[in-house]
Amino acid sequence: MPKDLPLNSLGFPKPPSETRVVVAMSGGVDSSVVAAQLAEEGYDVVGVTLQLYDHGAALAKKGACCAGQDIHDARRVAEEMGFPHYVLDYENTFREAVIDEFADAYLGGATPVPCIRCNERVKFKDLLETAKDLDADCMATGHYIQRKMGAQGPELHCAADANRDQSYFLFSTTPEQLSYLRFPLGHLASKAETRALAAKYGLPVADKPDSQDICFVPNGNYASVIEKLRPGAADPGEIVDMEGNVLGEHRGVIHYTIGQRRGLGIGGLEDPLYVVKLDPEKRQVVVGPKEALSTRTIPVREINWLGDEPFTSRSEWHLSVKVRSTRPPREAIIRPLSETEAEVELVVPEEGVSPGQACVFYAPEDSRIFGGGWIYKK
């Protein structure tokens, strides 16, 4: 590959026409704009859409990604812009790698984040390997996150638009994957800019609503999906206080999450109570006062580290961490126990820290992401 040519917009020293890029197309406006923009710039674009579940099955719903209408929408965009488009059946992979774990985690009293596992185990693993099989130079997605070149190579950074930032869901992207991935929307200031580009390219999805919820969970009703996947999972049991006193009966542990206050069905008490623990083995929902939700020390495992130095090269890392996708990063001290495990100490305790959620590491002074791991129960 010649070295004296200027880099194209994807970072390669050759003309766009000689640069093949596979675009992961969900059928939504974001990935459609990425594909259209790269096609207009003259890149050798190949669109790929994954069918992740049977859109006719009870699990799916209208407006979710990776099924039915969305596959049709992705195909229409490819036809409009004149590049090839392929649909790959990943239903079995998706069920084994994402849906089954989601159900089992809920049954275990955790609050899983299947979108992270989907990126980690399907999109950035199997699909990325497919892109390489197609002799693509890189794979582009519509995620709102930035890839920047640093002194040690590619770095992961938050999106320019904090309201659209998807860094929490992409912390498990490995350095090897990051070298191959591109995120053309990460620098945009707002979603309005994306929609303006969609209108500029005349895309049929320009006004398509954003997908909400988890793609295979109809209307956010997690419990109904888990009952279908794991019959008997919604067996009733006791609601108890922190001393074990029975306060009422619940309709299945899977209907409750850590930090929940409403819908407990134990009114008449003087002070509000919150779900502080789920015990699936005893079929108990444990409730307590708000202060019982405060957590300072968090055990984290399956760590993916994106720092320049080895994770275990220091006894402590002073970074910021995010323990829920909807919360801002908080100051913390991360103490490595191994290459993949750590104890995270929050400077200010957080409420409602839940096993199954991710703990994502951020640089305190800029937008860089240092990876993260999974919160678990000791």
Rank of each mutant, 00 (worst) to 15 (best):
P2R: 13
P2G: 15
D4C: 10
L5R: 14
K14G: 08
P16E: 12
S17T: 14
E18Q: 15
V21R: 01
S26M: 06
Q37K: 10
Q37R: 12
Q37N: 10
Y43V: 12
G47D: 04
D54A: 15
D54R: 09
G56P: 00
G56V: 09
A58I: 11
L59F: 08
K61F: 09
C65D: 12
C65Q: 11
C66D: 11
A67I: 06
A78S: 13
A78L: 06
H85L: 06
Y86M: 11
L88R: 11
D89C: 08
L107C: 15
T111M: 08
P112F: 06
L128S: 06
T130H: 04
A131P: 04
A131I: 09
D135V: 09
A136V: 10
A136P: 04
D137L: 09
M139E: 05
K148A: 15
G153R: 06
P154Y: 03
L156N: 04
C158K: 11
A159N: 02
A159D: 02
D161Y: 00
N163H: 06
F169C: 08
L170Y: 03
L170I: 14
Q177D: 04
R182G: 02
P184S: 12
G186W: 00
H187S: 15
H187N: 10
K191E: 12
E193N: 07
E193K: 09
A199I: 10
K200S: 13
P204V: 14
P204G: 14
A206M: 07
K208R: 13
Q212K: 10
Q212Y: 03
D213T: 12
D213R: 05
I214R: 03
N221P: 00
N221M: 10
Y222K: 10
A223H: 03
S224D: 15
S224E: 14
S224Y: 00
V225D: 02
I226Y: 01
P231A: 13
A233V: 10
P236S: 15
G237V: 09
E238C: 10
E243R: 08
N245H: 09
N245T: 14
H255Q: 13
I258H: 02
I258A: 02
I258T: 08
Q260H: 02
R261D: 04
I266H: 01
G267D: 15
G267I: 09
G268M: 05
D271F: 02
V276L: 07
D279L: 13
D279Y: 00
P280D: 11
P280L: 13
G288T: 11
P289G: 15
E291G: 07
L293P: 02
T297C: 06
P299S: 14
G307A: 06
D308H: 04
E309R: 11
P310Q: 08
F311N: 04
T312F: 00
S313H: 05
E316F: 07
R324T: 12
S325H: 12
R327A: 15
A332C: 07
A332M: 04
I334N: 01
P336W: 06
L337G: 12
S338E: 07
E343H: 08
V344S: 08
L346C: 10
G352Q: 06
S354F: 00
Y362D: 03
D366K: 05
R368D: 01
Y376I: 12
K377Q: 13
K378I: 11
